[in-house]
Amino acid sequence: MTQDTILANAKLVLPKEVITGHVVVREGLIAEIGTGAAVPAGALDCGGDYLAPGLIELHTDNLERHIAPRPKVAWPHGPAILAHDRELAGAGITTVFDAMRVGSIPESKGRYPKYARALASEMLALRAQGFLKISHMLHLRAEICSETLVEELSEFSTEDRVGILSLMDHTPGQRQFSDLAKMRAYVMGKRNLTNAEFDAHVANLQSIQTRFGAQHEAVAVAEAGRLGAVLASHDDTTADQVAVSAGHGVAMAEFPTTLAAAEACRAAGIAIIMGAPNLVRGGSHSGNVAAQELADRSLLDIVSSDYVPAALLLSAVQLGEIWGDMARGIATVTDAPARSVGLSDRGQIALRRRADLVRFAKHDGMAVARNVWSVGRQVA
């Protein structure tokens, strides 16, 4: 017999409301939910802190940051995965779809080498051996503007259980990089290119997109079907691009860059994902539409931490305050992402759901994660 874990005197963030109560965890599941501030013998007194479902991250570049911590520095994959796993657990994230780029430009000065298959294999092995604290799944970022997308996608199978495949097109002059001046500042700073090298880089990418773009987009859509992955678009900018996404069967739009694109997504029934850093910072670093503007217009469904894991909880609480509804804010990082990828066993504090939980407090404008549980086991 396993001993129950009781988390008491907490503000429970339920699907539609926040109540004071307690949760009983038994064999990794939520077994009981009660009301009131009483603290039974043997229970953990949460002291009036919030207790929410564990956060669900659909798109994060954080693992890439760990495998390449500095320009020209390649870090061993195993230690990088473990560091990434621990960082997310500490931020309250209990389920993550690790974003890995598929599609490379082997001879590019911009350095886009192949890495996804090897990294995925090491992550899946660590998961199978029980070394990871939280639940990790695969998100393949299919780079349309590349040379090797078809062969790299063919290396994945249904046994990999790819959860999401997103259509990425970083060709200069459109989508995220419609403003070439902003792209120049970003890429030259990140890749340490000269002006001449940047101009050659842009010309090369535009040539690659002309040669391979249509084929790669068609193959990526087909591969999502073969792998059983939810299809996502990325950086839709115009209503016409959203119409193409809808025709492909896209279920989620990651980071639409304009109000017009977000409105078209809503009309097409495509869930809208925005970046937590955009919300926390008060705007997009690329000059795209602000997440808060979409939130104010009820055009924001899901939040992703993107490149700052700690921003996920912070942004959800911020949305709760913007909307005057903490349950609605927390749902953007729990229930909504769970439903968007078909995970019916998590994302809510509800009976028989996985006991993926985060206890957090609000302090001086911050959301502070105190404790985190994954399938009932404390991981942070």
Rank of each mutant, 00 (worst) to 15 (best):
L319A: 04
R111W: 15
K182M: 00
Q174M: 15
A196G: 07
M123W: 07
H363T: 00
H66M: 09
M1G: 06
A220P: 02
T20N: 15
V150C: 07
A118V: 09
I67S: 09
T95E: 01
A316T: 12
L7F: 13
R141Q: 04
A271T: 08
A222C: 06
E57P: 03
R65T: 07
D85Y: 10
R191M: 13
P337F: 08
M366I: 00
A253Q: 11
V358H: 02
Y115D: 01
I330M: 12
P40K: 14
V368M: 13
A68C: 08
R101I: 00
D160G: 04
E87T: 09
I134P: 03
A316M: 14
M137C: 12
V244P: 02
G28A: 07
E293M: 13
T95G: 01
G47L: 12
A220H: 07
R339Q: 14
P113A: 10
D61C: 08
E151W: 03
D306C: 06
A267C: 10
A52I: 01
S135R: 15
I322M: 15
Q215C: 02
H77F: 14
V303P: 02
Q378G: 01
R127W: 01
V358D: 02
G103N: 10
G275T: 13
N204V: 00
P76F: 11
G21F: 10
T194A: 04
A251W: 01
E159V: 07
A118Q: 15
V244G: 05
L14A: 10
S305Q: 04
I144K: 01
P53Y: 05
V39K: 09
L138F: 09
G329W: 01
V303S: 11
A295C: 14
A185Y: 11
R211I: 00
S146A: 10
D364N: 14
E107F: 09
P79F: 10
L259T: 06
E32P: 00
T148L: 11
T2S: 14
R26P: 00
L82D: 03
R86F: 05
V303K: 06
Y307V: 00
I330N: 01
E217G: 08
F198M: 01
T95S: 10
N204C: 06
T94N: 04
D45A: 05
V341P: 06
A43G: 03
A120W: 05
I272K: 07
L205P: 11
L343W: 08
L138C: 08
H216D: 03
G48A: 10
S245N: 05
A267I: 07
Q318G: 02
M366H: 14
K11H: 13
L138W: 08
V358Y: 02
L357M: 03
A267W: 14
K72T: 10
A120H: 06
G376Q: 07
A369P: 12
T158P: 00
F156A: 13
M123I: 03
Q378C: 10
T5Q: 13
A268T: 10
T2E: 14
P277R: 10
A185V: 06
L119F: 07
L205K: 15
R161G: 04
S166H: 01
S207Q: 13
R281S: 08
